[in-house]
Design a protein around this nucleic acid. Sequence first.
DNA 1: TATTGTTATACTCTATAACTATA
DNA 2: TATAGTTATAGAGTATAACAATA
Lengths: 154, 154
Amino acid sequence: MSKHALEEASDNGATDLEDLIGYNLKRAYIIVQSGFRDAQGEGGFSPRVFTALALTVKFPNITQSALARKMGIERSGLVAIVDELESKALLARARVPGDRRVQALVPTEAGQQAYDAAMASVRAHEQDVFSNMSESEKKTLLDLLRKVRKNEVS
Amino acid sequence: MSKHALEEASDNGATDLEDLIGYNLKRAYIIVQSGFRDAQGEGGFSPRVFTALALTVKFPNITQSALARKMGIERSGLVAIVDELESKALLARARVPGDRRVQALVPTEAGQQAYDAAMASVRAHEQDVFSNMSESEKKTLLDLLRKVRKNEVS
DNA sequence: TATTGTTATACTCTATAACTATA
DNA sequence: TATAGTTATAGAGTATAACAATA
């Protein structure tokens, strides 16, 4: 141990909240989510509803259980989300021949358009909230966040 | 516009959820927070209680209003958090001579020790959840997350 | 027996509004 | 008038457990 006494306190990493990745991740996420809601405005999509619509557009005919799994939530929690999107006629629950238990989720034309518009607004919001970062820095952040996800044990 | 037609769809950035920083931020945060709770175990600190204790240790005699501001929550929401920490005798609400409205939060000896132990466990958890990343990558991620926070408008 | 969608229910986190006691 | 702490209340978001229909 050749370090000075004053340095010993942080020998093994963070002793301060501000040095924790998790803490900074939370604070950054709160900022981005809050901006997302502002960008969507009154009657706009909440993050989870936007995610559900986006995945339905990307994977048409996905079942509710599969969508819940992809979103990382319980399938019971998805019911209200799909109800909301169906009530706005942005997607439909379609019967599947061959397995009468499942409901295939299919985006409507209006759903596709609403998704495109919402995505444009989200992109504009991200331009704004990350406006102090270069394209290269944003790419690095994206890659590192993906790497965190990739290491998930579950 | 010299790009191929197939590339035009993503000319201005993300068209896919997976290309949004916000979405990846959320997913990464859920993983880290969930691991935090597992690491703390039964009867352990929730993220927000840990944060409140950490800030009280760092800034002894901070008022409840100031702590709430630092945490980014309403002061009404802090009451239950401080109640919990006080009921476990980890901090005390102290009267302040000169202004009888305020309550200065002071960590107890047990609070300091509980904080040290919890922080050690959080550090171990972060070693684990970011085990596929180099020290350099973790440092970069931390710096970029701080940069996001630094750009906050509000 | 297992799975899909659903309902009922409860818990956590947070916000808003109003109250009190002070300043 | 304004601020600190508090209470009451409501709204998201999520989870668990149970159920009917179907496999």
